[in-house]
Amino acid sequence: MTKALGVILAGGLATRMGGGDKGLLQVGGQSLLSHVIERLSPQVAGLALNANGDATRFRDLGLPVVADSIGGFAGPLAGVLAGLDWAAEQGADCIVTAAADTPFFPTNLVSRLVAASARQAHPLVLATTPRTGEELKSGGRSKVNRHPTFGLWPVALRDDLRAALNDGLRKVVLWTDKHKGREALFEAAPFDPFFNVNTPEDLKRAEAFRV
Rank of each mutant, 00 (worst) to 15 (best):
A4W: 03
A4H: 04
G6D: 10
V7L: 15
I8V: 13
L9E: 06
A14H: 09
G19Q: 13
K22C: 10
L24N: 06
L24M: 15
Q26R: 10
S31L: 01
S34Q: 14
S34G: 10
I37S: 01
I37G: 00
I37H: 02
L40P: 06
S41L: 10
P42V: 09
Q43D: 11
Q43I: 10
Q43C: 12
A45I: 01
G53C: 05
G53N: 05
D54A: 07
D54K: 04
T56G: 04
R57M: 02
F58R: 06
F58M: 08
R59H: 11
R59E: 13
D60P: 00
D60H: 14
L61F: 15
L61C: 08
P64C: 14
V65T: 04
D68R: 06
G72W: 06
A74S: 15
P76A: 14
L77P: 05
A78L: 08
V80E: 12
L84Q: 08
A88P: 01
A88H: 13
A92N: 02
A92F: 03
D93S: 15
C94I: 03
I95M: 03
A99Y: 11
A99Q: 14
D101F: 08
F104D: 14
F105K: 05
F105Q: 08
L109P: 08
V110S: 05
S111R: 11
S111F: 02
A116K: 01
S117F: 02
A118M: 00
Q120R: 07
Q120C: 00
A121M: 09
A121T: 11
H122K: 08
H122W: 13
H122A: 14
P123A: 00
L124F: 08
A127E: 09
T128A: 15
P130C: 05
R131P: 02
G133L: 11
E134K: 14
E135C: 06
R141W: 09
S142Q: 07
K143E: 13
N145S: 15
R146T: 10
L152T: 04
L152C: 06
L157D: 03
R158V: 11
R158L: 13
R158I: 12
D159V: 07
D160K: 08
D160A: 15
L161V: 11
R162A: 13
A163R: 14
A164Q: 07
A164W: 00
L165G: 06
N166Y: 00
D167F: 00
D167R: 03
K171S: 07
V172F: 12
V172T: 15
V173R: 12
K178M: 09
H179S: 02
R182Q: 09
R182S: 03
A184H: 03
E187Q: 12
P190C: 11
P190D: 09
F194P: 08
N198H: 11
P200L: 01
A206N: 10
R210G: 03
R210C: 09
R210M: 15
V211F: 12
